[in-house]
């Protein structure tokens, strides 16, 4: 799983997102759904983007695919995919990349498939936009893909409609559709949230296997830290449209550096530890993007905000790399202090 980073394009990363901003002007004011996000991803690796509702994680994924309408959204920054910049590119060029070089699977496979067309027709359509082949060839490819994602008797099921599939089978079909053109980048937005736990495990296994086979880069967007720990190589935690922590998966789970990440870890009951008496939730609720708190957006919910000498209320903390690591966090609190809090106050209680 954790293969070394492959360098495919001579130094520059396969996917390089730089200072991405996606803003929506609304009647109530400017909504900064994504505000200065940067990350990189190589082929064969998985980035987990974690966040709660309104954190900007889904907006980011749609932004990479170029699915925000230019009339509604202001997108700025740079997205480099395999050496091509997407934000400033002609929308029709980006459209041609979609489905072929980057594809997406969604949370709810039932509502994400057209109810009037067969599973096969929808896969064939995806394949034939980007490949000049006959319907017959495309159909054979669709059956082949369905078989590869583990759908039994694919030659029969190819003519079924989405509502005739079970939830897990639908998500497999969705994955087959997304992978039909062998895209290098796969974005999975909460792909298992709507599924039962045994089916979720099957789908996660499938994604892992397919990644090995296709050598794709995967962005896994989820609220479930368990899923991230199972699949991701790197993790990016979003809060209020910004990245608050970004690092390798081991660092994130064993040495997290942001109080919000601590809160997320303390919020979830864990099956791999003895039962705790009480969960340690974050107080309050995720902020509204229209009315983001000043300074560090997390400060009203942060138990340590009073230790920053008032800076947390006035100053947006920068995302800083910790020396000799690749681990970054955006927090005003001194890093040594944070390490101490984690090691003595938080970690042992999980």
């Amino acid at each position: 799983m954790s293969e070394p980073v492959k360098d495919t394009s001579g130094g520059s990363p396969f996917l390089d997102v730089r200072d991405l901003r996606i803003h929506f002007p609304t009647d109530d004011g400017l909504v900064r759904s994504v505000d200065g996000l940067s990350f990189t991803l190589e082929r064969g690796r998985t980035l987990g983007i974690v966040g709660e509702s309104g954190s900007g994680k889904s907006v980011t994924s749609l932004g990479i695919l170029g699915l925000h309408h230019r009339r509604n959204a202001r997108v700025s920054g740079e997205i480099w995919l395999d050496g091509k910049e997407l934000v400033g590119a002609d929308p029709d060029d980006v459209r041609r990349l979609r489905g072929r070089h980057m594809a997406m699977i969604f949370q709810d496979p039932l509502s994400s498939m057209h109810p009037f067309y067969t599973i096969g027709a929808q896969i064939i359509e995806a394949y034939r936009i980007h490949n000049a082949v006959s319907k017959k060839v495309a159909r054979k490819h669709a059956i082949d893909m369905l078989g590869r994602v583990g759908i039994p008797t694919p030659d029969k099921r190819v003519d079924d409609y989405p509502h005739q599939f079970s939830g897990g089978m639908r998500q497999r079909a969705m994955i087959a559709m997304a992978l039909s053109c062998d895209p290098e980048l796969l974005i999975a937005d909460e792909p298992t949230t709507a599924l039962d736990v045994t089916v979720q495990a099957q789908i996660l296994d499938l994604l892992r296997d397919l990644q090995r086979e296709f050598d794709s880069a995967i962005i896994m967007i989820t609220h479930d830290l368990g899923v991230v720990a199972e699949l991701a190589d790197d993790v990016l935690v979003m809060y209020g449209g910004r990245c608050v922590e970004y690092g390798a998966v081991d660092d994130m789970f064993h040495r997290p550096l942001h109080p919000y990440t601590w809160g997320l870890l303390g919020s979830m009951p864990r099956l791999d530890r003895a039962r705790t008496e009480r969960l340690m939730p974050v107080k309050g609720a995720p902020p509204s993007l229209i009315n983001l708190p000043s300074g560090c957006a997390f400060h009203p919910r942060c138990a340590y905000a009073d230790r920053t000498g008032g800076r947390s209320q006035t100053e947006v903390p920068e995302l800083r790399v910790e020396p000799e690591t690749t681990h970054r966090a955006a927090c005003h609190l001194d890093v040594a202090e944070r390490r101490r809090v984690w090691e003595t106050e938080i970690g042992p209680k999980l």
Partner: peptide, 10 residues
């Protein structure tokens, strides 16, 4: 959602 999917297919 399926319109989003159709767009995501390119």
């Amino acid at each position: 959602d399926y319109i989003r999917t159709a767009r995501a297919k390119g």
